[in-house]
Design a protein around this nucleic acid. Structure first.
Lengths: 342, 342
DNA sequence: CTGTTAGCGCCTTCAC
DNA sequence: GTGAAGGCGCTAACAG
């Protein structure tokens, strides 16, 4: 924490009062609606405020008992990912509409950093927390640890932690995307996704398996690649798949990064003279731009991260009433849409 | 501002002190490094802290004279745009490294909202402001209005406002992208960009004109479209261009949104049986994924918004020393790279 | 080494 | 209508 900084030139309520020839109380009252203050006095006060460039010190204000900071702590894993950028935007939007500001931290998928952030947020008296958890454990997130500050988990759930949660319909979406491939006649379908340890990775694989099962199929282990964290790894995994003696005719990709990797590899092969007919169809959980311009058929499991953020904020705000709402925690699954790119 | 909220269950320093059988001062000292506190007493204090789940109230802390809030206000135009998401990430990254947190607001290109946000940030005693301005005017951003809080402008400059600014090399980048098209033999090059009123729109057009001038060319008014705000409008503009009797053979697009629009229209025409040879080459200011998979040649003017954010934070932090640095304001132009997509 | 005093900026409560 | 205390949680400064 930075210590001993620049003396802010911010005028205080007392200076405004002196400037206007009234008491601080009169300034305070004027600024809070002006009931019980004579109009002409208000005029004078407001003029002083303008002349001095006075801004009420919200920090001092929120120190008073019964006042809240008006701050919502938001910790996400990667702001640079448009998915989370839009998520944060949704939270900000709803929070702002309710007079709250968000204070934002990026965890970079690092549980230690997440822990620091959460602790700092609590220290800053946030009214609530929205968190995309980066680990599997939620011990630092118990209601006790948080001093009763309400918490909403987003995108991922946490074992053994009872908290409001917003998720995508991962299972349904993955099943839907897979069904689209099955409906197109594919039976050898590969799966590209996150590591087993990632919550969404597990759920989307579950949806994939479920859709296959509906048609009496089971996943072929040789066609399942689950450890790609970035585009390059996805590209390599795709290469391996397509080099198999008996390659898949379609690929279900559990996220955006993997989908891009698949397409890069497909493009590489086409440039090398591979036949378009030999290229796999793709179904992708997560949209990506220009899907309609791809050489192979692309099905998208689309969803709205911004709406997910809005919903997270809504759940949180519902807990911020005067009464420390004791309702049981809620779990919301946001719908997804299966669309074939045009 | 939300009033009269839930009484936080946060324990205070006094409760910790009572629990540990010491005075609040001893707790304070222990928590700030523990010099001049007997080790065994520290033990007891820290145990009490743990048992009570105590977090130091940073708000009360920063109320003390000479203390700063550790908060940087960041107001950007559209968090949902990956460009600004990465920008915010860069700011957060550097701020966090210096013990600061960012408080984030989205202006949605609305000057009124920007004004509110800035005022609120000042009220929250931010140490500094990073702003992507949404209007042309900066009257609410004078050093007086801001109470001396340092300000860094990003991406766009503001007439008549003397403040630290980080920009992209818009002119050089646009010229470079245009040159790539000229080098490929194109002479009828269209320009798609922002409205004239947008700072970057003006600068990128300037670069475009400059590159043409180097080859003794001038822009053809019929080939300049400058009012597209979204993909759909860009698509329409492209349609008009390609429908001309004497259509352009290449398009320089001043931003990501326009580039995507161009490509959508190109795809639409190809699907309708248009000849690939009749399609324009594209140079795009701003990168987009899968550029290498496009049916037409694509040149990218690439840059790193995250680094832009880092630089903005650096400029700001340089002003946060104990002395209210009176150095003249700096203007930094971040380099861009012209690359042909692979 | 530890405790007491005082005050940061504001607003609730109680006088006038 | 307006003003004077008092205190929110914390920590410099000053005892002891």
């Amino acid at each position: 924490m930075p210590e001993g900084q620049r003396k802010s030139k911010q005028p205080t309520i007392r200076e405004v009062a002196a400037h206007a020839g009234v008491s601080p109380m009169t300034v305070s009252r004027t600024l809070s609606g002006g009931v019980y203050v004579r109009p002409d006095v208000q005029e004078r006060v407001l003029r002083a405020v303008r002349e001095l460039g006075y801004h009420r010190n919200e920090i001092a204000r929120s120190l008073r008992p019964g006042q809240s900071s008006g701050l919502i702590g938001v910790a996400i894993t990667n702001l640079g990912n448009p998915y989370y950028g839009n998520f944060a935007l949704g939270v900000e939007e709803v929070a702002a509409r309710h007079g709250r500001r968000i204070i934002l931290g990026n965890t970079g998928e690092d549980p230690a950093r997440e822990r620091q952030l959460v602790s700092d947020f609590i220290g800053r008296q946030v009214e609530g927390l929205v968190l995309v958890p980066s680990g599997r454990s939620g011990e630092h997130l118990s209601s006790d640890e948080l001093g009763g500050v309400p918490l909403v988990l987003a995108s991922r759930s946490l074992d053994g932690l009872d908290a409001d949660t917003v998720l995508l319909d991962d299972v349904g979406g993955a099943a839907g995307g897979t069904r689209a491939l099955l409906d197109a006649g594919h039976t050898r379908i590969a799966f590209l996704g996150n590591a087993r340890s990632v919550f969404t990775g597990e759920r989307r694989f579950e949806g994939f398996v479920r859709a296959l099962a509906e048609r009496g199929l089971v996943p072929d282990d040789a066609l399942v690649e689950r450890d790609q964290q970035d585009v390059a790894a996805a590209e390599t995994a795709t290469r391996r798949l397509l080099d198999l003696d008996h390659p898949p005719t379609a690929i279900f990709s559990a996220n955006n990064r993997n989908s891009i990797g698949v397409l890069h590899e497909v493009a590489r092969r086409l440039r090398s003279g591979a036949a378009l007919e030999a290229m796999p169809a793709l179904a992708s959980f997560d949209a990506f731009e220009l899907a309609g311009l791809m050489p192979v058929p692309v099905t998208i499991v689309d969803h709205d991260p911004r709406e997910l953020g809005r919903e997270a904020a809504r759940l949180l705000l519902a807990r911020l009433g005067p009464e420390p709402s004791v309702e049981p925690s809620r779990r919301v699954e946001m719908p997804v849409r299966v669309v074939t790119a045009t």
